[in-house]
Design a protein around this nucleic acid. Structure first.
Length: 438
RNA sequence: CGGAGAGUAGCUCAGCCUGGUAGAGCACCACGUUCGGGACGUGGGGGCCGGAGGUUCGAAUCCUCUCUCUCCGACCA
């Protein structure tokens, strides 16, 4: 992508409304534009990141055996009345009337609808387990939206729903999501820590919030230090096998957000030098809720004995749009964003220090063509901005590698590679640069 | 929803108290000088001062109502 043809409105000054660093940087980098309280338009740079995150989420859900569908944003209110959530959800749920005065709700979540889909088609335990997910915009009319995309009213969420014949099988479904989540966040360069969360009506320990540590996080969290750098299962993990040891390896260590934190337990279970108290951001939440929806909605299947029974359900959410902000919170410096490579909007920022200079242009065009041919996503700054502005801009938008080409270096046959994360700069020949980056 | 604050150029803000033809910096356009870490000069474009009422000869400024946004608290992917 040539910057001269791209749409990336950088802001030199910080918009007044932005309080937290991710919000400030997203606005300054031209990633989003606020259209109303808690409602954002995604500009090209932000959109690219959002799609990268979505892709990782999708790949890991598929790997874990979940099946993608797409449910609508608008839902008939009848489904919500069936489960009793129509009244329970309160004013946080946006209700709309169509021209026929039929009431629709803008979905804040999809348990009711997915259960409706399930009950329409699934009759036998032989079709289980089943896990359906989608990645769709949600709306929750929060009293006070804030922190940019971290707490928007409209947000993109991946929500998965598992259906099992019994609790033991449901636990396996739960574990698959647990492990998939560890992998998902890890692939985005995040260290996620599952923490005990409210268990809902069924009880037990089958509810976890996935927290990433960030100084600017919204909630105080407490956990065993060993959880932070605990290795994450690689892509060869067998989702059909027994995942219990992986899950138990973590759940056996103390980890709780402030809501669930009990200081006495914390001190009893964790040696003093292993106690970690930090700020965290919730990026995912999984829980098992049994027949909470299947019973009232009569989502029943026949078991091996021929008897019908309500299926055991769980739901599993990832805040896709929130992750964009969360990753920035976890990875930035004074100059701007530092994208982890897998979610970076581009792989390489190619900076032409003297656009218009024949030799420099030629070298850049050559590098641009070769890197693109090698499949790299390159943002080529071919504008005639001053070098200082280009450097500042490149640092701000946080592309992992900057390839800097200018007449001064070219006289020596050299270009410069700067690694955004470390700030390290290296000079090398054009060929060496291509070898390194292609 | 309780408390606090803000709406004036694309952005950051001044002007309001004490009413009298709407400002600065950045950004944008033109020309020139510049050009390796957010250049400089000259010229230019851009605003019914959130909206509606009211007071007044005259309102960005005073009064009333209203809308929107932000921050702190209780709730949440």
């Amino acid at each position: 992508m040539r910057l001269s043809r791209f749409f990336m409105p950088l802001l030199k000054e910080t918009p007044a409304e932005a309080q937290i660093v991710s919000h400030r940087l997203m606005l300054r980098a031209g990633m989003i534009r606020q259209e109303a309280a808690g409602i954002y338009a995604w500009l090209p740079l932000g959109h690219r990141v959002l799609k990268k995150i979505e892709k990782i989420v999708r790949e890991e859900m598929n790997r874990a055996g979940a099946i993608e569908i797409l449910m609508p944003t608008l839902q008939p209110s009848e489904l919500w009345k069936e489960t009793g959530r129509y009244d329970a959800y309160g004013p946080e749920m946006l209700r709309i009337k169509d021209r026929h005065e039929r009431e629709l709700v803008y979905g804040p979540t999809n348990e009711d609808m997915v259960t409706d889909i399930f009950r329409a088609y699934v009759r036998s335990y032989k079709q289980l387990p089943l896990n359906l997910y989608h990645i769709q915009w949600k709306f929750r009319d929060e009293i006070r939206p804030r922190f940019g995309v971290m707490r928007g009213r409209e947000f993109l969420m991946k929500d998965a729903y598992s259906f099992d014949i019994d609790a033991a099988s449901a636990r396996k479904s739960y574990n698959r999501m647990y492990v998939a989540y560890l992998r998902t966040f890890s692939r985005m360069g995040l260290k996620s820590i599952p923490m005990r969360a409210e268990t809902g009506p069924i009880g037990g320990d089958l509810s976890h919030e996935f927290i990433i540590l960030a100084d600017t996080g919204e909630s105080q969290v407490f956990c065993h230090k060993d959880l932070v750098d605990m290795p994450v299962p690689d892509e060869n993990v067998d989702f059909d096998g027994d995942l219990e040891p992986i899950v138990r390896g973590r759940t056996s260590l103390y980890a709780a957000t402030e809501d669930k934190h009990v200081q006495a337990e914390f001190e009893a279970q964790v040696p003093e030098d292993k106690r970690l108290s930090a700020r965290g951001i919730e990026v995912g939440h999984i829980f098992f809720f049994g027949s909470k929806y299947s019973a009232p909605m009569r989502a029943v299947v026949a078991g091996p004995d021929g008897q019908e029974r309500a299926v055991e359900g769980g739901s599993y959410g990832i805040g896709v749009s929130r992750l964009v902000g969360a990753i920035i919170e976890a990875s930035h410096d004074d100059a701007g964003i530092i994208w982890p490579e897998p979610v970076a909007p581009f792989d390489i920022a190619l900076i032409n220090l003297k656009a218009g200079d024949a030799a420099t242009d030629k070298a850049c065009e050559d590098l641009y063509a070769k890197l693109r041919k090698a499949g790299r996503e390159v943002l080529y700054d071919d504008t005639q901005e001053r070098p200082g502005a280009k450097f500042a801009g490149a640092d701000l938008i946080g592309i992992p590698v900057q390839l800097i080409v200018g007449p001064r270096g070219l006289e020596k046959g050299q270009v410069e590679i700067k690694t955004r994360k470390t700030g390290a700069r290296e000079e090398m020949s054009l060929d060496a640069a291509i070898n390194r980056l292609a």
